[in-house]
Simulated scan of single mutants.
Amino acid sequence: MCRQRSLFIAFAGYRTKARCGKGESLLVYVFFMLAIVVTVFAAVKISAYSDAISRLSGMGSLLIGTFLLAGATSLPEVTTSVSAVYLDNPDLAVGNVIGSNLFNLLILAVFDVMFRQRKIFKVIDPQQGYTALFGLLMMAIIPIALYFTIEVPFLNVGVDTIVIIALYLLSLWVVRRKSERPEKEEGTTEVPVKEKYTLKQALSGFFAAAITILISGTMLTFAGDQIATITGLGSSFVGSFLIATSTSLPEAMTVFIAFKLNNSNLAAASIIGSNLFNMLILCLCDFLYDGSILQSASISHTATSVLLTVNSAILCYAIFSRNGRHVYLGPSVMIILFYIVAAVWMYVG
């Protein structure tokens, strides 16, 4: 059965029929797979361009990955969450951000297990621990604001939004200062790289790929919502996992390509930065929504937001305890397990 008004059809400006025929259902799945192919291609290209920009500009992988690449791969989340606000569906907007951040941490943990011989958290720039710490502080605000917040006069937003924005700007300042020194992964030697692009070509290619990700990622989101409608999954589960997983596909591919390019710093920074940027998206939704969006969202998001905070804390531990752990894969395994717990909780609930 189809919902009377799905996110995909609402965006297009049409109403759905009461039922979806088999032909229409098949078309949705084909559309979904096509969007995946285009998104994967764009994500592969944007990772290569980001890797080149980090060297050619001299800005380094930490700054490029945390803000430039992370912002580009998070563009589908912007469309999804903002569309949810205009549909007066705060649960979908909040669930998309929480679910995307949970899935992003899962991506990093899974690749850490897959590339365990590299010991990612031991070789990345230790300064990434500070951006991860900012992420933890921002995530911890969500479960609190779901129950209590103070609305800021004239702005019509919760004080939690102002705090999150302040933390993001502070993280930008910290990363910029830390990126002023040359970065080098531990246990590696400088190897001259034959550049395939000029800085101008890399920047042009980056923005072209970012626009492609925005379009294909948005189509992926809407097709995913239609699939959720056809299969009859619950709205909370859809917002936190199906849609969130779809919009996080660019992050997954960029991390994979970054590892293939032997740029662990770029891979980790893109995930941590995406989570920070997603919190800004939540703030944008709060400005657009009539009242505090977290106060209007269901308290069912409490469990997943708490688990997101826990996984963020585990990530901080993994980075800061890089040389003090006897079992290296422990944190990544815990992040994977807590993600499974969150998925089961939302599906059952």
Rank of each mutant, 00 (worst) to 15 (best):
I293W: 01
T161A: 09
I299C: 12
R177F: 06
S240Q: 13
K178S: 11
T221C: 11
S179N: 11
A43I: 03
A297R: 00
F148D: 10
V37A: 14
S274I: 00
S216N: 11
A166T: 08
R5W: 14
K45H: 09
Q128D: 09
N275C: 02
N263C: 11
N262K: 13
I211T: 12
K260T: 07
V193T: 12
Q226V: 08
S305P: 06
A297C: 08
A210L: 09
Y317A: 06
T302E: 08
T16A: 15
A18R: 14
T79K: 10
I64P: 00
I162P: 04
I9Q: 08
I227V: 10
M59C: 12
F222V: 11
G232V: 08
V28A: 01
A132H: 00
K200F: 12
L106T: 06
S54D: 04
V113F: 13
R118G: 05
F148H: 13
I211A: 14
D290C: 08
N275K: 01
V333K: 07
N89S: 06
C316V: 12
I141M: 07
V175A: 05
S236Y: 11
E151T: 13
I162F: 11
V28F: 00
L242P: 00
A258R: 05
T198A: 11
L7D: 02
T16P: 08
F154V: 14
L282W: 00
R116Q: 12
F8S: 07
F103L: 10
I257E: 04
A109R: 01
